[in-house]
């Protein structure tokens, strides 16, 4: 499982990096999808198959489709690519990259030196997830559902007003 974990994490990091540097928006989204799939595999190797499946269904399968949908509708052409190239000047990305490298070094130090019993000693199945969601974390679930309901009502409201104006 160790090797699988490291391979999947490497894929995730490389895909994310490529996603950031692509000029074409759809290609970037494709790399982001690959990155999400790799993250799902990371979850799986850590013993959380339920979360892995949900990651694919919700993030890779639904939200990213919406992203692709919107990007397709925008019809980005060469002008957008030129703008993207403009945005990716070294002076813009060097600063954040250096800070991110510092953070990665810290994480590697923690991973190698601290005692982390990470590699899934036990498999967390759907039962355990459900029981903890609707047991100790019930209030969080309810709050999240209220938030989502608010978002839903808001979206519905925006859609309606557009309809009446027409």
């Amino acid at each position: 499982m160790n090797i699988l974990f490291y391979v999947a994490s490497a894929v995730a990091i490389i895909a994310t990096f490529l996603m950031l540097t692509r000029m074409n928006a759809v290609h970037a989204l494709l790399y982001l999808i690959v990155s999400l799939l790799a993250v799902a595999l990371v979850f799986y190797t850590l013993g959380a198959p339920f979360v892995a499946a949900l990651e694919i269904i919700i993030y890779a399968g639904a939200i990213m489709v919406l992203f692709v949908f919107v990007v397709m509708m925008l019809n980005l052409g060469r002008a957008a690519e030129a703008q993207e190239r403009e945005w990716q000047r070294p002076s813009l990305w060097v600063g954040p990259s250096v800070l991110a490298v510092v953070l990665i070094a810290e994480v590697i130090y923690v991973l190698t030196h601290a005692d982390t019993r990470m590699f899934g000693a036990e498999v967390v199945g759907p039962h355990q997830v459900a029981q903890s969601l609707f047991g100790p974390y019930l209030i969080g679930v309810e709050l999240a559902s209220m938030l989502l309901l608010g978002g839903l009502v808001g979206a519905f409201h925006l859609g309606r007003r557009l309809e009446e104006k027409r």
Binding site: I33, P49, F50, A52, A53, L54, I56, I57, A60, G61, A62, V65, V68, V123, G125, P126
Partner: peptide, 17 residues
Amino acid sequence: MNIGLLFFLAMSSLGVY
């Protein structure tokens, strides 16, 4: 798999791409 059904759903949702 113990998440077989979810795996099926995940794969069918990736098929959209």
